[in-house]
Design a binder for these strands. Structure first.
Lengths: 249, 249
DNA sequence: GATGTTTTCGACTTAGCGTCGAAAACTTTC
DNA sequence: GAAAGTTTTCGACGCTAAGTCGAAAACATC
């Protein structure tokens, strides 16, 4: 139920006029566990703001805003994320796509370039008011075409997680293989075998063992080793291999 | 040796001002054979125009131009390609990325959204003057950041050719396996085994046999079967497999 | 000490790409 | 017309790496 387009796309002098803005699809894997820790029910989540003005007042929207003439789109994105969310730096950022459908904004002609941003689950709550992590699996209707934008961001992440080291941006500095499995499962949307995950990531040199953790809140069982990613920058690690879905299920 | 930036990024009234344009990276596999036919030396080529005005007069540039306020970027792209090149429809088109570096245009602040376009080798010569197919392997210096844009387009194609059916947009309606091998080799930049290519594409249901051709200009040898792609729309055929480079070389 | 739980790792299976060589199906030459 | 040469096709084998499974390790609890 979109508002009807009502303003012409030209200013008073009849000069063509449009806005260019940036949007951030900031994703994390959260929930499922007690207090920050991941658990079996960890889900992929996106950072959204509740709009307090028309159009689409009251609906959820992606953070972002206009690009100043003297700044790059990346600078504009960082500026808006910082101002609107109190969000620090992203662990990974890449351009997604530019959305330009003339009808996507009912009031103005707005061209929006969307970026995918990733933060680890350890960075927990957004500081600003009206900002929430929304589960992608159960996304409410969103303002403008932001639903589409979010879907495209998740798609990009899903595609890259199995042949790049992009998961480094979602994982905490140190983690157990079980926690990493939860992250991969949340991103891929299907069961992931720990044995296979461990072997594949080690073979590719993506992760290395840090030590063995004496877990405080342990429920028994062999104490897990802790691991970390060997690199903290995005890299294609194996264009010829993929973590497919488990065949038996 | 770029011109020095000389115009401010605001108009006479001090209002922030920038242009948004579209660019087309139109690729084909051409050359290497006599008269249109492919051959062992087939190369990946990009369609470029020779600029006749500043900035970058005399240099090669990608086709494209401004987006009108009432049209979508796809419409703008089709309009510019048709007007500047006399080029008909593209067999495949997808958005590449948006280039927004404030210094990329020395005169204005120009944000450019680039599209990848593919045409089959059978569509031979561009009609307009000052337009040429340039070999990507030996690309001259280009205007603006177009060199970067072309590189990104080729990268996208290279990445997708082995796990999608995107090659349908580069191949003629009917072809022999040898001709298809030449296309894959030109795109991937390495030797491709015909046996493997045939088996993989057949297993995925990408190609089907049409018949056996009695070749007019044959030099002897067993007459090849002719093949065609089963679909004429882009589709991801196998996210879990890739045509890697030959190991022996 | 026995039991239960979680993690780790080696061993086996399977799928699919890479390679090779023989056979097929033509043209050209002697 | 037979032999030689060329190109294509296809079956067969090998190898790599992902997928699976179960046993052993290393803890907590009873």
């Amino acid at each position: 139920m979109r508002p009807v387009m009502r303003a012409p796309f030209r200013d008073q002098r009849g000069v063509a006029k449009y806005r260019h803005e940036v949007l951030g699809v900031v994703l994390r894997v959260g929930g499922g566990g007690s207090q920050g820790a991941l658990g079996g029910g960890a889900r992929l989540q996106v950072l959204a703001r509740n709009r307090d003005h028309e159009p689409f007042a009251g609906m959820w929207a992606l953070p972002g805003g206009p690009v100043e003439v003297s700044e790059s789109m990346e600078e504009a994105l960082a500026r808006h994320l910082s101002a609107q969310l109190g969000l620090g730096s992203l662990r990974h950022r890449e351009q997604l796509a530019t959305f330009s459908d003339p009808g996507r904004d009912p009031f103005e002609r707005t061209i929006a370039t969307a970026y995918l941003g990733l933060v680890p689950c350890s960075d927990s709550s957004p500081g600003a008011a009206g900002v929430r992590w929304l589960d992608l699996a159960d996304l409410p209707e969103m303002a403008f075409d932001h639903h589409l934008v979010v879907e495209q961001g998740a798609e990009r992440l899903r595609g890259k997680v199995s042949y790049t080291n992009i998961a480094f941006a979602l994982a905490p500095g140190e983690f157990t293989m079980a926690a990493l499995r939860d992250i991969y499962r949340a991103v891929l949307g299907h069961e992931v075998d720990v044995t296979n995950l461990s072997r594949v990531l080690r073979r590719r040199g993506q992760i290395e063992r840090v030590g063995t953790r004496a877990e405080p809140g342990s429920r028994g069982g062999r104490p897990p080793s802790t691991w970390r990613f060997t690199e903290d920058a995005y890299r294609v690690t194996d264009p010829f291999a993929v973590l497919g879905p488990a065949r038996g299920r």
